[in-house]
Design a binder for these strands. Structure first.
Lengths: 139, 139
DNA sequence: TGTACAATCTCTAGTGACTAGAGGTTCAAG
DNA sequence: CTTGAACCTCTAGTCACTAGAGATTGTACA
């Protein structure tokens, strides 16, 4: 079973330039080529790219994914760093959520103060941005 | 009252290269210079930069901030676009929160499956990333 | 007034994770 | 054998900065 890069792209929903980018970054092995120099992937390539896609969707960085791939290729090594990577990603996601929630509160308050009907000289959005004291919380 | 760029940076907690970047981007007016070509800011510059910092902290893009500044400088114009900008920023923040919450659930599950004690051949984190069927939800 | 040295200047290049486009070549169906 | 979709490489652009080189200036202290 052999796939062109387009076929691989369709199956994984990863765009073609992104696939080539992952190859450049060393996440994907350079696949075999046709005589005319076009990439031909096999099942292993498909699985590897699915792994990468899945990890990217979960917000892992390219660097973290590279580490995870090394672990995957050495099934005898301790997986403590895999666990560590996942936990720190989780911590990061949680801290982002916390921050965004505070932004949400602030923005909702801001937006409620202005219905867009007046002139900008009276606009609460602009006033609040200019004067931090109008904020309820620090951010 | 005159500030050097360093003093302005200290007061606003915006880094010096970032201040110069905002000037390049047209968010900050080019301030007066000393004879030796160093920037000297006044109160207006400080207030403008505080406005920008505040908006950036709330996640507004440079482009959106530029629009807000135009409105600020024309107090007679309708503020409907200010309201629109704030509302769409709010919508974006909310959609990010939703996405991150779903990632959080998935990552928590992933991390719980591996305590980091085993070898990576048995690692649930790696297995789950390789096989999407092990996920509870689509993402 | 001299001298250190911290602060500032401009400029280029790098970050992460792609995306867009130019200009050329190859594959596969009819 | 022809057509045209798909592929190739390469460069440059995105966003909002950040880092560093190499030169100049401002200021506090002796």
């Amino acid at each position: 079973m052999e796939f062109s890069i387009g076929e691989l792209s369709r199956r994984t929903r990863v765009k073609i330039p992104t696939i080539r980018y992952y190859e450049d970054m060393g996440l994907l092995r350079a696949p075999d080529r046709t005589e005319g120099n076009q990439r031909r992937y096999d099942r292993a390539g498909l699985e590897r790219l699915s792994f990468i896609k899945h990890a990217r969707d979960l917000g892992f960085s390219i660097e973290a994914i590279a580490e995870l791939i090394v672990l995957q290729e050495h099934p005898d090594r301790s997986c403590s760093s895999a666990s560590h990577i996942a936990l720190s990603q989780l911590a990061e996601v949680r801290s982002k959520i916390t921050k965004l929630k505070s932004l949400e509160r602030e923005l909702a308050r801001l937006a409620k103060g202005c219905d867009g009907a007046g002139v900008s000289g009276d606009c609460y959005v602009l006033a609040a941005l200019a004067d931090h004291d109008l904020c309820e919380h620090e951010h």
